[in-house]
């Protein structure tokens, strides 16, 4: 896909319009899509693809994907949400993802940032330091 600066700028603006109090909401996204359909941009499909791409990024920034090999209590999940909301200064929703390769502990991903407190990660770092 060719990167057009104008389209990128438009897609980013659309993402901003999709936010309500700094959080992307389904209702706002629906409104933005309806508006886009009305306007019928010359590169409608490209704009949509770019919008989807930046929307994914924005959602990733608002979501803490908690990978863990076992189950996690609701309280723990809540505590994670509170902690990361405080760190990033915006509301962060926690989502659980099961990953048995971690052996034990948790790994949390918020956007590009990865917080690793898993045993597998610990062992990997140990191996790197020893070799």
């Amino acid at each position: 896909m060719k990167r057009d600066k104008k389209i990128i700028r438009l897609a980013k603006k659309l993402v901003e319009l999709s936010k309500d109090n700094g959080v992307v909401t389904v209702a706002r996204v629906g409104e933005v899509l309806a508006g886009l359909k009305q306007v019928q941009h010359r590169h409608h499909l490209t704009v949509l693809k770019s919008f989807l791409n930046y929307l994914h990024r924005e959602i990733a920034l608002q979501t803490a994907v908690v990978s863990t090999p076992g189950a996690l209590s609701g309280e723990a999940l809540k505590a994670i949400e509170v902690t990361y909301s405080k760190i990033y200064g915006r509301p962060v929703t926690a989502v659980i993802k099961q990953d048995t390769s971690l052996i034990a502990g948790v790994r949390v991903r918020v956007g590009d940032d990865l917080y690793d407190a898993s045993l597998a990660g610990r062992l990997q770092r140990l191996a790197e330091n020893v070799s």
């Binding site: 590009d112 990865l114 690793d116 407190a117 610990r122 770092r125």
Partner: peptide, 12 residues
């Protein structure tokens, strides 16, 4: 020197 704290990294 083991500490149970999380290690932060930035990925792409």
């Amino acid at each position: 020197s083991f500490q149970a704290s999380a290690v932060k990294s930035n990925t792409g």
